Amino acid sequence: MLKPTYPIETARLLLRPYTMDDLDGLHDFHSRPDVVRYLYWDARTRDETKAALQTKIGQAEFNEENDTLCIAAELRDTRALVGDMYLFWRSKEHRQGEIGFVFHPDHHGRGLATEASKEILRLGFEELGLHRIYGRCDARNNASAKLMERLGMRREAHLVENEIFKGEWSDELVFAMLRREWR
């Protein structure tokens, strides 16, 4: 079991579990078509965001394989919710995890996603004891690909037209890092 000690503080962010107080902030970016362009859901209504938030609230710790850790990223100085972080525990036997992130476009270009993602990698490697953490993105999602490269993750695969995504064939990029590379 892994229950992080919250809040996790970085230079500019607090990473913490979600609460119902996050509804407005989360809806502010989950409702935007430009944010969800490369995600598996469409822009959410307020009710859909509320349902997603209720699920996230119950995902603040790992208890078993296939659990998801959902963490809110908020600015330390203003307490504004700016990011939505994920760590998926994909395999206990093979000690594999997957990182995910969604940030409000108003806060892009400031290194906040990199700052938060480094802490998610640390949680996975140092606290959960994972051997390998990977991340996936649509090949057209340059911002996510560049973020994973900045984190030091290596590009391991470019899957060509591997799935129909929002009505069209799309390519997928896979990036990964091993625990020994994290150290």
Rank of each mutant, 00 (worst) to 15 (best):
S91Q: 01
K118S: 05
R90K: 15
D106Q: 14
A73R: 00
R183E: 14
L123V: 10
K3Q: 14
R46D: 04
E93V: 13
E65K: 10
S117E: 01
L173C: 04
L23N: 06
G109N: 11
R110P: 01
E149M: 10
L69M: 02
L173M: 09
W169D: 04
S170H: 09
F165E: 05
R154H: 14
P7K: 09
S91T: 09
T10M: 05
R150L: 07
F103C: 02
Y38L: 04
D138C: 11
L123T: 02
A11C: 00
R179E: 15
G124S: 02
R79Y: 08
L2T: 03
K3C: 11
R37L: 14
V174N: 01
W169H: 14
P7V: 12
Q54N: 09
E149G: 11
E74Y: 00
E127R: 05
Q59W: 01
L130W: 04
D22H: 11
F125W: 05
E149L: 13
V102H: 06
F175M: 03
A139C: 03
R95Y: 06
G152T: 10
L2M: 03
F29N: 04
Y38E: 04
R180G: 03
P4R: 03
M20H: 13
E181P: 07
D67C: 10
V102K: 07
